[in-house]
């Protein structure tokens, strides 16, 4: 089995296990304020890291290319409170334009 399949199955199994566990544990077990706060902060850190890695790195090198232009467009769209599909679309169009015409 290759990396992709292990990723698909492993992610799915653990994702479901986490969901089901939540429905099965006593409420006070996870409602500690510190756990709640860290739970809000972890997605922020991981998603920000993913934004960074996906826009300016390729394998193990820092690479500045068309993707950064796309990210700039996405930031602009978010500043104007654009909905999610517009954010993604403006990034894609800008990046594709830079890739194809420069």
């Amino acid at each position: 089995m290759d990396t992709l399949w292990i990723g698909v199955i492993g992610t799915s199994v653990i994702a479901y296990a986490l969901k089901f566990a939540g429905h099965s544990v006593p409420e006070k077990f996870l409602s500690h304020p510190l756990i709640k706060r860290i739970n809000l902060l972890i997605p922020i850190a991981l998603l920000s890291a993913l934004v960074a890695v996906q826009s300016v790195t390729t394998k193990s090198a820092i690479v500045i290319d068309h993707r950064l232009a796309g990210l700039g467009a996405a930031i602009l769209a978010l500043f104007f409170k654009a909905p999610f599909p517009i954010v993604v679309l403006s990034a894609a169009i800008t990046s594709a334009a830079v890739y194809n015409f420069f």
Binding site: A52, S55, R67, G70, L71, A74, V87, V88, L89, A91
Partner: peptide, 10 residues
């Protein structure tokens, strides 16, 4: 390839 980081940003 730019849609992915934009999605994370969103």
């Amino acid at each position: 390839d730019a849609a992915v980081p934009a999605a994370f940003l969103g």
